[in-house]
Design a protein around this nucleic acid. Structure first.
Length: 280
DNA sequence: CCAATCCCCGTCATTACTTCA
DNA sequence: AATGAAGTAATGACGGGGATT
């Protein structure tokens, strides 16, 4: 079974609740079943598969190095966040948003220091220079993205101080750093979900194949039983066990009996992901 | 109980890139 | 080969709402 052997090498519990249960109220840096950098084929396939939003993996991204214009701010609007400014002009709902509670909230969050940072992060585009009010979306520079990524590898969430420091270092607003981390977490989680989904699909296919194989084997065994010797026929079917791998048949266990047919004391479940011969 | 804060989620809009006629 | 329109992916940003303090 190739890859699936590796992936499903232990007792696999396909807890598909991953797709239906709402995300557990994960707290930042909460341990998850998938550690960073781990691929689904390598983690323990006990597949409770709670979404691991706190993990990250290497996402090789391309960055727009020289196209990044920092085009947000007009000097006369320094009390507003970059996003607010952006939205006021870019969004059709700008009039509403400028009065929204979110805006009030944002302004409340902005300390004077942050406003100062915003001043520093304010950049004018060429378009702004020539009077065209075409506001463009912020594109982080390669350096900014790299630093953010590096920081994200260390902490997927930032406390207030870290946020402030990083924002200062990047010449961005704390809000921009915060949003970047939020988006990064969300998109990491989304990608991981997709990976998990693919993995579960593969496991499902494997189990379907295995089920098909076992059904076929069962049919063969039934046919064999019908053609079996009278000894077999005298025994209740439930007392017979057979290893699907070596196809040795067991019967009633009497402890001392040297009969090849001894009844299993416990139900003998065949684990498709374990080595069958090991059980023999 | 209320307010402040943080984070997640869903969504929108812009930008860059790709495809195709 | 050049080009412009259409489609798509990436990503910055926001509002709403739940959880926590």
């Amino acid at each position: 079974m190739g890859v699936d052997d590796d992936a499903c090498n232990t007792g696999l519990v396909l807890g598909l609740g991953i797709f239906s249960t709402p995300e557990t109220p994960t707290k930042p840096n909460k341990p998850s079943c998938l550690k960073s950098g781990q691929q689904p084929s390598s983690f323990e396939p006990s597949l409770t598969l709670g979404l691991s939003g706190d993990q990250f993996y290497d996402v090789t991204k391309k960055f727009d190095v020289n196209k990044g214009g920092y085009l947000h701010h007009h000097d006369q609007e320094l009390t507003a966040t970059a996003g607010d400014l952006y939205r006021r002009q870019a969004s059709p709902h700008s009039a509403v948003s400028s009065l929204s509670s979110g805006r009030v909230k944002r302004e409340r969050e902005l300390s004077s220091e942050e406003v100062e940072v915003e001043k520093n992060s304010s950049r004018l585009s060429d378009e702004d220079d020539d009077g065209v009010n075409a506001r463009k979306k912020l594109r982080l520079t390669k350096q900014q993205s790299a630093l953010l990524e590096e920081s994200f590898k260390q902490h997927t969430t930032l406390n207030s101080k870290q946020k402030q420091a990083l924002a200062k270092q990047l010449s961005l607003t704390p809000r921009q750093v915060e949003v970047w981390f939020q988006n990064r977490r969300a998109r990491t989680k989304l990608k991981q979900t997709e990976v998990d989904c693919e993995f579960l699909k593969k496991c499902c296919e494997t189990l379907t194949d295995e089920n098909r194989r076992l059904q076929k084997e069962l049919q063969e065994l039934k046919a064999l039983k019908m053609a079996a010797q009278p000894f077999y026929m005298q025994m209740p079917a439930a007392t017979l066990t057979m290893c699907p791998s070596c196809e040795r048949t067991g019967g009633v266990a009497d402890g001392n009996s040297k009969s090849p047919f001894s009844m299993a004391t416990k139900p003998h479940f065949y684990n498709p992901f374990s080595n069958p011969s090991a059980a023999c």
